[in-house]
Write a protein that binds this DNA or RNA. Structure first.
Lengths: 200, 200
DNA sequence: ACGCAACGATACGTAGCGTATCGCTACAAT
DNA sequence: ATTGTAGCGATACGCTACGTATCGTTGCGT
């Protein structure tokens, strides 16, 4: 293996240009249609520099996402879990409807054949926010706003799965204004409150 | 454009070999790690033959999926919508946990940067089964088993989104034995039946 | 002033793309 | 029976991007 480079001597300027250019190029052309050489050229950087710090285009794009999103999407606690979820999911939907959404789709795509990328997505994006959401749900369960007989982990998946389903498999994007209904359906359930009146 | 080939003179043998080999190779190595040249070689076929009938690896893989799945995953109607959903979703989970799951993940991945593939997935896989599910839900609504104030389209997404979420973003696969609980959570909802007892 | 390591640039061999061009063969029309 | 047609497998082609190696250059710490 090539000797590891020294992060202390790393050019902050080159890193910034690379991360910004990555988002811009992928957002415009799609992940699969952007080459590392093109990113290097557009960023005014030697492609050696990219390969020195990132092992693949997917890893670079994932880094660019995390750099751009930063501390956004943190979880509030107003006491009303429905309002908190509505706010957070709406914010996520807005983010995914922009440039970040295109880049994220590409990274998830690459992860389907590259387990290392999948693990990195989970570790840097999904898991931290899942845990934050779980923590919020735990307090909601404690005050009786949510059922206590469902693992909060399962709740998180149930709430966010439709967002990612629409991102990756939907005919069109989920709109922010659709979030309240979506949330209500998850919370109230599909079963009729009237019960089964099939047989007379 | 190259003149369209005549389907009547197409070699059924070559088509069979290509479709079977595609599933086999992608299931073993992952979509991104299989080349059309490798499929042609393993199928004992000239790569010209593949390019003559399929425009891309994604289109070929999608065809191979549809060929292998065939009429499976049809929708029963036993009168009990919960049992019917449980059976159908379990069947889907089993399918996605096998070779088809690997191939499908690859096709969805390719679709993220290739809108034509995405449209083809919707048209040949998602939409027909969504409509079949919707039809079953409509009868369930009619007999009072499901709420009448949620569009059946939204219900379908709510039920199936967690399956695809786990397929594409999960740390590990959804097990068939997890389906009943998942279904119950969707049907009953996350909100506590006791109501909010936060403030004394 | 010096040395080191990251930098941008460039060259390189390799893999796979998608197309073109071979006879060869199976089948349909005559 | 003969002939024409068109899909077939094989092979060669130019091209693009990959990922690595190797330059001289530059900027920073000592």
């Amino acid at each position: 293996m090539t000797p590891a480079p020294n992060p202390d001597r790393r050019s902050a300027q080159a890193r910034r240009n690379i991360l910004d250019t990555t988002i811009e190029l992928i957002a415009r052309n799609g992940h699969a249609n952007v080459t590392i050489e093109a990113i290097a050229a557009a960023a005014g950087v030697g492609k050696t520099t990219i390969y020195r710090w990132w092992p693949s285009k997917g890893a670079l794009a994932l880094d660019a996402i995390n750099d751009h999103v930063g501390e956004a999407l943190d979880f509030p606690d107003t006491g009303d879990v429905v309002a908190d979820l509505r706010g957070q999911i709406t914010e996520l939907v807005n983010l995914l409807n922009g440039d970040i959404g295109v880049v994220f789709r590409g990274v998830i795509a690459e992860a389907q054949s590259a387990p290392a990328i999948g693990a990195a997505i989970l570790e840097t994006i999904i898991e931290p926010r899942t845990r934050a959401c779980q923590a919020r749900l735990v307090t909601a369960v404690a005050v009786g706003q949510l059922r206590a007989d469902i693992p909060t982990r399962a709740m998180v998946e149930l709430l966010y799965a439709p967002v990612y389903y629409r991102l990756l498999l939907g005919a069109d994007a989920l709109r922010p204004q659709d979030v309240p209904d979506l949330l209500d359906h998850c919370l109230t359930g599909l079963r009729s409150p009237a019960g089964d009146r099939m047989a007379p």
